[in-house]
Design a protein around this nucleic acid. Sequence first.
DNA 1: GGATGTCCATAACCCATGGCTATCACAACA
DNA 2: TGTTGTGATAGCCATGGGTTATGGACATCC
Lengths: 304, 304
Amino acid sequence: MDIHGRDLRYFAAVAEELNFTRAAGRLFVSQPALSKQIRMLENQLGAPLFHRDRRTVRLTAVGEALLPHARGMLASWQAAEAAVQQAREAEQHTLVIGMSTSPGRGLLPALRTRLVSQYPDARPVLRQVPWVDPSAGLADGSSDVAFVWLPLPDGDRYQYAVMAREPRLVALPRTHRLAARAAIDSEGAVDFTDLLDEPFLALPPEAGPLRDYWLALDAWGDRAPRIGGVVASAEETHEAVANGQGVALLAAGNAPLVVRDEVIAVPVRGISPSQLAVAARQGDKRPLVLAYLAAAAKVGAKAR
Amino acid sequence: MDIHGRDLRYFAAVAEELNFTRAAGRLFVSQPALSKQIRMLENQLGAPLFHRDRRTVRLTAVGEALLPHARGMLASWQAAEAAVQQAREAEQHTLVIGMSTSPGRGLLPALRTRLVSQYPDARPVLRQVPWVDPSAGLADGSSDVAFVWLPLPDGDRYQYAVMAREPRLVALPRTHRLAARAAIDSEGAVDFTDLLDEPFLALPPEAGPLRDYWLALDAWGDRAPRIGGVVASAEETHEAVANGQGVALLAAGNAPLVVRDEVIAVPVRGISPSQLAVAARQGDKRPLVLAYLAAAAKVGAKAR
DNA sequence: GGATGTCCATAACCCATGGCTATCACAACA
DNA sequence: TGTTGTGATAGCCATGGGTTATGGACATCC
């Protein structure tokens, strides 16, 4: 039923040499091993492949029929191996860069330039990742590196280079008292203390530290936020804010996903900024990945 | 280096199912066996073929590269097996008929007709065999059946059907006294007793009973032939007779090989005739062989 | 004609391979 | 929270594919 490539190699060698001993030498096996294998192949096919007269070996009709196929398959396998090798190298040189929204700021071309100057064969590939995955494809391996907003769930599973820090925003209904009032200062921002009486939209409890971060829990002192609802996506957040269930903190980069129609976003002063970072999986030591992180660190340092 | 067809089958199955358990079922092996084999293939190629995320299996780039080659090779092997099968059947239906000179007498068409009427698929193939092999290819397996002159060396290794009996001839120089004289009777033959004083050409001693037969030893009574020389082929016989070293007995069918220029051949009366037979190897029970022998026996009986 | 060489087959042995069953780990789901 | 589905792991065993040593049948050479 199946065939082992080795048997075809052996068969072809004997067919060429028409001499078991020489063929065995060429194949770097002992002559009995070769004899045995050929015989097993003959048994498998149900017909002898060689006439072994006393002093001479020659192909039978069946052997003649098999030989071209055998040669063809050996060549095919060589081609297959080459294709695999090529794919491996392509994979080697490909760097999949995940992102949910473009990081903008000219970051991508800058990093790309640095990467290819160091690894001319590198092929950076951009990949759009649905917003539901905050790791932008790192978690499931569909990205090698990714632009992410810190903090990240399971944050210790990744290594980072921070690219930019920018104030968190608060999403409000356009009709909200804080949206129109003098609460918005000369810089177009609101104070976090002005938000303390508002109901907040929170991520589900299983989001862990991520939930705490987007409630800015460390800025509440001894007070506790009032939770106006639980949201798990940009879409839900938009809906909940528009319906007046509460306000929500946002990374600047995610604002475009939430701000539209009746929802606006305003920078918040008095809480730590959110951070845009390039991340990779912890322990991923592939040269391209490390180079991209290093490039990100350099560019990030310069930008700050 | 080499590849086992089974591994390609396994790989293709998993690539189609994208599910190890189901693929294993389809292949009639256990799931662990399949997992192990795939992993070994991956090790051999130096790259994973499948992404195994928690719940899903999908091809890697390398896997994608390999898959078409794998399918191609599986198809190639099927084709090769079919070719072998076809060759086997052709061999099955082929009957190689050895002969040193054509038996003539319309025997070949007669036997052919009988054979194909019984086995319509049979393909009788005529094969000319050099005179040095009195078994006309039976001994070395290059013929399945053969037209031979009895007796044969190692005669018990063959089975026969006698087709015709005809007087043995004696080869003489054209200038020999027996050639021109009244020794040649009304039937154009000579009496063996007229030859008793001639030197005889003999086959080499290792020819055994064959040597005795062609000296007609049983017809000498208490006399013994005088050996004029030893010959091992038709060519040598021609030379020796032409040189006057002696006379030689011949089968009628072999006369054309010896008679030319200064050598003639004359039937001999008073010794047993030589026999033309169809022979096969003793113990060869292949239907086509037996059918040909049977046909020969029928035709031979009718001819006599 | 006996010694020697060539060549394929056989025998006896060894260990890596490829199969099995049982079981685990983990996510999804009811 | 128990159940189900899926792939990985562990431990076991038969077989396959290799080895060396040897045999037997011819050629060839001195």
